[in-house]
Computed example of a mutant assay.
Amino acid sequence: MPKGYVILTESINDPAGMDAYSRAAGPSMAEGGASVLAVDGRPQLLEGEWHGDRTVVLEFESAEAARAWYESEAYGRAKPLRQAAADTNVVIITGSEQPSRGA
Rank of each mutant, 00 (worst) to 15 (best):
A24W: 02
A34L: 12
A34V: 06
G41E: 13
G32D: 06
E49I: 11
P27W: 01
A34S: 14
A20P: 04
P15S: 08
E31F: 01
G32F: 06
G48E: 06
P15C: 08
D40V: 15
G17C: 11
E47H: 11
G26S: 10
M29W: 07
G33D: 02
R23D: 09
M18R: 02
L37M: 14
A24D: 07
V39I: 15
L45C: 12
D14W: 03
A30T: 15
P15L: 03
A25G: 12
V36Q: 08
G17K: 06
P27I: 00
P43Y: 10
Q44A: 15
G17P: 01
P43D: 09
G41P: 04
G26N: 05
L46H: 11
G26K: 07
A24V: 03
A38D: 09
L45G: 09
A34F: 10
D19F: 01
A20E: 12
G32L: 04
V39T: 12
A16Q: 13
R42T: 15
Y21K: 04
L37W: 07
G32M: 09
R23N: 04
S28A: 15
G41C: 01
S35Y: 02
P15A: 07
M18Q: 08
E47A: 12
G17A: 08
V39N: 08
M29V: 03
D40Y: 08
S35W: 00
D40G: 09
V36D: 00
S22L: 06
L45A: 10
A30R: 15
L37A: 10
A38C: 15
D19P: 01
A34G: 09
L37F: 07
R42D: 08
A34H: 09
M29F: 10
G32R: 08
A25V: 07
S28D: 05
M29A: 12
V39L: 13
M18G: 00
M29P: 00
Y21C: 08
A38M: 15
A20V: 00
A20K: 14
G26A: 14
A20W: 00
G48M: 02
Q44V: 10
M18E: 01
